[in-house]
Design a binder for these strands. Structure first.
Lengths: 147, 147
DNA sequence: TTTCGATGGTTACAAATGAAACCAGTTTGG
DNA sequence: CCAAACTGGTTTCATTTGTAACCATCGAAA
């Protein structure tokens, strides 16, 4: 364990990134192959499916996306007629976004697939390992938030 | 807990990605601000600093990068004269990469910063939480490998 | 009210990325 | 020996991304 050497394999930021990248890449096949969605588009669909109605800003907060990603994802889903925008009564800068029937149908089709994916991933771990990853992730999330 | 709803906040692929993204973004400030490096460039520097000499293919495996990323990162570090290529004796397709004195000096400068970053992140967790994240990440890595 | 700083959201531009084609050079099988 | 398949690595092209500038609109303060 040389002090002046960094072992990438043990370096947490690297391991986290590689892990997330691998998982996300595999999962993305589900929405990419089936519907040609990008990740921001999937998150938009997912966020609106879950919450019903949100503004672009709220969507960005809920799904950790930069406003430009949100803007472009929303534009594309609108083009597909999977969502609609309704202008806010009081503030004309704001639009309320909601899924259309078609968008909602797609969302409903994806949810079980997403859950199955997560389930199969976790199924490969032991009970203690499952507890560990969930606990550890939550702890890091907390640490970063209150930073 | 509606069965036909996916809660993004609890969905492991999303949480992992967001976590890795946040951590990686913060860490990247260290090498971006100091030396204007991209992530692939940083990983190349780090990989060669750790191992001494590698081919581009080995580097890609060690640091989980697509070959095009490796190619471009190597080209840039070579341009800065932080690494050199030595043609292989037996196989003329292969080049052995190694850091120059300057490259190595930069690497040595970065190592303590990287370790400090990781240390400060982990320091915000309790002992059990630290164990949990390390254990959980290792478990998921294993699960994905043997898939 | 007018002005000025924030805020919601879009757009323009440059840089980073991924897929696939590509160019050696190398190995294998006939 | 030679063609075909393969491998290490680079390049091209289209897509995605991030930053910053931008265009409304809004709210607060003068």
């Amino acid at each position: 364990m040389e002090p002046d050497i960094l072992e990438l394999e043990r370096f947490l930021p690297y391991r986290l990134y590689r892990l997330a990248d691998t998982v996300s890449r595999e999962f993305s096949r589900i929405y990419k192959e089936r519907h040609g969605l990008t990740r921001p588009e999937w998150r938009t669909l997912s966020g609106l499916g879950e919450r019903g109605t949100m503004t672009a800003t709220e969507l960005g907060e809920q799904s950790a996306m930069h406003k430009t990603k949100v803007s472009r994802a929303v534009a594309e889903l609108e083009r597909r007629r999977w969502l609609t925008r309704t202008p806010d009564e009081n503030d004309r800068r704001v639009e309320h976004l909601a899924l259309t029937k078609t968008g909602l149908a797609t969302y409903r089709e994806m949810v079980p697939l997403a859950k199955a994916f997560e389930g199969e991933l976790l199924a490969r771990l032991s009970d203690e390992e499952r507890v560990a990853i969930v606990r550890g992730v939550a702890a890091l999330e907390g640490a970063l938030e209150r930073k």
